Amino acid sequence: MPQVFPRSANGVSRFVLWAAGLLLLAGVVVAVAVPRSAFDNGIGQPIAQPVPFSHKHHVGQLGIDCRYCHNGVETSSSAGLPATEVCMTCHSQLFTNAAMLAPVRDSLASGEPLHWKRVNSVPDFVYFNHAIHVNKGIGCETCHGDVDDMPLTERAHSLTMGWCLNCHRDPEPNLRPPGDVFKMHWKSPKDIEQIRRSLISILDIHPENMTDCYVCHR
């Protein structure tokens, strides 16, 4: 019986099979890696705001406390965004004619609030409570990064389910005394491990229940 395919067809078929396998593997790697990448999660990418507010200037240089602008952070699920009147407590006296602050002045005159865009957010099906975290000893910079070094605010961490669960399974390495929650570049004392063990009990933290679905999905 005559040979239908030349001998070279064996090499071609092996090449095609290997290429198909590598392409499939690359597709799986891309599908897994992209959702976890900084590009997809927006890490390190400033978001345009109606006013180019600088945390580096206000927090890092002037030392303004987080709670001055985010006044709901200790009592509410939402940290809150500053009302125009909060901005104008200073800027009715300072840089009153600065061009970049025109949207703030227009907001005060019209009564239309500034439409700040969220930099750090979770999906609507996720319940996140700022108050419970800061009152249990989780510092602002743990999730939001070194905002006092950010000329324009950017996301510091992915805030994915896996990232949050890592802390919920073992919160101890991220704990600090509640009085130090709002300190930037906080330096832990030498006996921090003992302090953290005691905080688990004092602050009534129960890691054994913190990965239950209902904690974040209600």
Rank of each mutant, 00 (worst) to 15 (best):
V30Q: 12
N129Q: 03
G27I: 01
V86K: 06
E141L: 05
K183N: 12
G63W: 05
G179R: 06
L81H: 07
T211C: 07
V51E: 03
N71D: 14
H55D: 11
L81G: 04
F125I: 05
R218M: 08
V51K: 02
I202K: 15
A83M: 10
E193A: 15
V147N: 06
S77C: 02
D124G: 08
Q49A: 11
E85G: 01
T84D: 06
P177L: 07
T153E: 08
S92L: 05
F128G: 00
D180P: 06
T75K: 13
A33I: 14
C164H: 02
V86D: 11
F15A: 15
H133V: 13
S77M: 11
R176W: 10
L17H: 11
A98S: 00
F53C: 02
R176H: 04
A98L: 05
Q194G: 14
G42E: 07
H130C: 05
T153C: 07
P82H: 01
E208A: 07
S121G: 10
A48Y: 12
L108I: 03
S54P: 07
A131R: 13
K117D: 14
R197N: 15
V29W: 14
R197D: 15
V34D: 11
F95D: 10
S54H: 00
F95A: 13
M88D: 04
N209P: 06
N174T: 12
C87I: 09
H168E: 07
E193H: 14
H91V: 06
N129C: 02
T211K: 08
L108H: 00
C90R: 00
L62I: 02
N135A: 10
H70V: 05
D204T: 11
G60M: 10
H91Y: 09
P6I: 06
L175S: 11
V86W: 04
S188Y: 13
S8D: 12
H130P: 02
A79Q: 04
P46Y: 09
I205Y: 05
D191M: 09
D106A: 15
Y127V: 07
P113S: 01
L159G: 01
P171F: 01
Q45T: 08
S110Q: 11
E112L: 04
H144N: 05
A98M: 08
L22F: 05
V28N: 03
S198F: 03
P207V: 02
M184V: 04
H217A: 06
C140L: 12
R67K: 15
G11T: 11
P82G: 00
Q93S: 09
V104F: 00
S77R: 07
G111M: 01
V12E: 13
A20T: 14
G42I: 04
E193W: 14
D106T: 14
S92T: 04
F5T: 12
P151V: 08
L199K: 05
V28I: 14
P113Y: 03
A79E: 07
H217L: 04
N166Q: 14
F39G: 07
C69S: 08
M184D: 06
G111H: 10
D180T: 06
S8I: 14
H133T: 08
A20V: 12
Y127G: 04
L81F: 10
D124S: 05
I192G: 04
P113R: 00
R196D: 05
R105V: 01
V59D: 00
H55T: 12
H168G: 01
S92C: 02
R7A: 15
H55C: 15
R36A: 15
C69L: 10
P189Y: 08
V215Y: 00
P50L: 13
T211S: 11
